[in-house]
Design a protein around this nucleic acid. Sequence first.
DNA 1: AGCCAGGACTGAG
DNA 2: CTCAGTCATGGC
Length: 211
Amino acid sequence: MNSIRKLFDILFDYYGPQHWWPCQTGARWEIITGAILTQNTSWTNVEKAIGNLLSAGLMSPESVLATPDTELQELIRPAGFFKQKSAYLKAMASFMLERELAFEQSADVWALRKELLSVKGVGRETADSILLYAFNKPIFVIDAYTRRVAERHLHLDGTLHYDILQKTFMDALPPDVAIYNEYHALIVALCKESCHKTACGEICKKIANFS
DNA sequence: AGCCAGGACTGAG
DNA sequence: CTCAGTCATGGC
């Protein structure tokens, strides 16, 4: 058993299933919207922006594209970087209108990833989050939390290149959407409980026993 | 009063 | 390819 799998087992045993992505409607476009709005931004701010969009009846690619930039920017303002992100949302909305069906049908995850990376505003993490949580494709998401946990609990170099770190996790795990989905969610759960605090909680002691 | 949050783009070297 | 500068709000 490798330590990456062990950590998953410990976290799953401790926290249980997380049923991500955090979402009001569960709609695919809301997941995609959240993935873009949360770029370098706390989730509480993203929730406000998403709430504004829902209240305004603008939670779909079509309605977003039909909204003037300045109006869209006001709605997503709480999520920060609102000028950039309004453009990113529209770019992604156009892309979805064009490619959503093809994405549902294709099993070539890496080809889909490459396509997503060509959309303005979509980097590696955003692309992988969309693939995993909006389309249920088997790909592992690396983010700031993952890097923190990798360094702190798995003795890995948290500054490794995204693709390298991603491959490290994927090679150590079964190619299973449910596992990739849960693992990332569990890492977030762990970080929200203890990684920001100076003192580690009970869970960190359990992890320490193995590593 | 700063510092930072579930990044990505751009330009420079 | 690596690196700094830029983008912006809200919570602590």
